[in-house]
């Protein structure tokens, strides 16, 4: 990786009372790479991610995005800069159709009577949705169905399409293949590869080691709030990763 990192996390620490949920964590993400974040429950993955996506403000350390140090007050500020976090089920309104979800909060409108009256431009939103879905090679039978009638993988695709349409520069996916059937899991992994191919980096949180080895370039293992190792996927194997996760191996102790 010769380019500058798009995201650069330095010494981020987040405490909840006496508990140190993230302890002095460094993390770099470069354009076009998939970084996997692993660790047992309570290892601090979600805390770290929430610091990056603006949900939490870290107690110490800095986060730079595109070379500029940032401090997000809300997740919306992070998203406006291009950090799109895709949650399992929280992000979509199940009763609305696909274009309504892709454009939720940022609807396209017709101006009428020189801007006095505004009307939703449903046709253009449907066309744009179709376009971004075909860019991702996602085929949905009906765009005008409530998304609650779609499968879990299709819903993930809609959430990703929303991120892409709004020029996501970094996509964070939290357990994207959880609760999905096997064919659906494959589709989501394919989507991650497409994101990577189009130059958008992805931070992938997952427990599923085969998934991680299938799509990631690098992996970061966390344990008890600390980063215990960072390795290129090509240089490691599942067995070693598990040893790091359970604490049998720890690069910080060796150093």
């Amino acid at each position: 990786m010769t380019a500058e990192p798009i995201l650069s996390v330095r010494g981020v620490t987040k405490r909840f009372g006496g508990l140190v949920a993230a302890n002095n964590v460094d993390l770099d993400v470069y354009p076009g790479e998939v970084v996997a974040l692993l660790g047992d429950n309570g290892a601090g993955k979600s805390t770290l991610i929430k610091c990056i996506s603006g949900v939490y403000a870290p107690n110490a350390g800095s986060i730079s995005f595109e070379g500029r140090e940032t401090r997000f007050a809300t997740p919306i500020e992070a998203r406006d800069l291009g950090i799109e976090t895709i949650y399992q089920d929280l992000a979509l309104a199940g009763n609305l159709d696909v274009p309504s979800n892709v454009f939720l909060g940022r609807e396209l409108e017709h101006q009428m009577l020189s801007g006095l009256l505004k009307r939703l431009d449903n046709r253009r939103m449907a066309e744009e949705t179709q376009r971004v879905l075909s860019d991702l090679d996602v085929k949905l039978p009906h765009l005008d169905r409530p998304v609650e009638t779609l499968s879990g993988g299709q819903r993930q695709a809609v959430a990703i399409a929303r991120g892409i349409y709004w020029n996501a520069k970094l996509v964070i996916m939290d357990e994207p293949t959880n609760n999905l059937g096997v064919p659906e899991q494959k589709k989501v992994l394919e989507l991650i590869r497409r994101l990577k191919a189009s130059g958008v980096p992805v931070i992938l949180i997952s427990h599923t080691l085969p998934d991680i080895f299938a799509v990631s370039d690098r992996l970061v293992v966390m344990r008890r709030g600390c980063k215990v190792t960072e390795k290129n996927v090509a240089d490691t194997n599942a067995e070693e990763v598990v040893q790091y996760m359970i604490g049998a191996l720890d690069d910080t102790e060796a150093a």
Partner: peptide, 10 residues
């Protein structure tokens, strides 16, 4: 439909 999603969508 989903109050949380509406908040997250800004």
């Amino acid at each position: 439909g989903n109050r949380e999603a509406a908040i997250r969508a800004g």
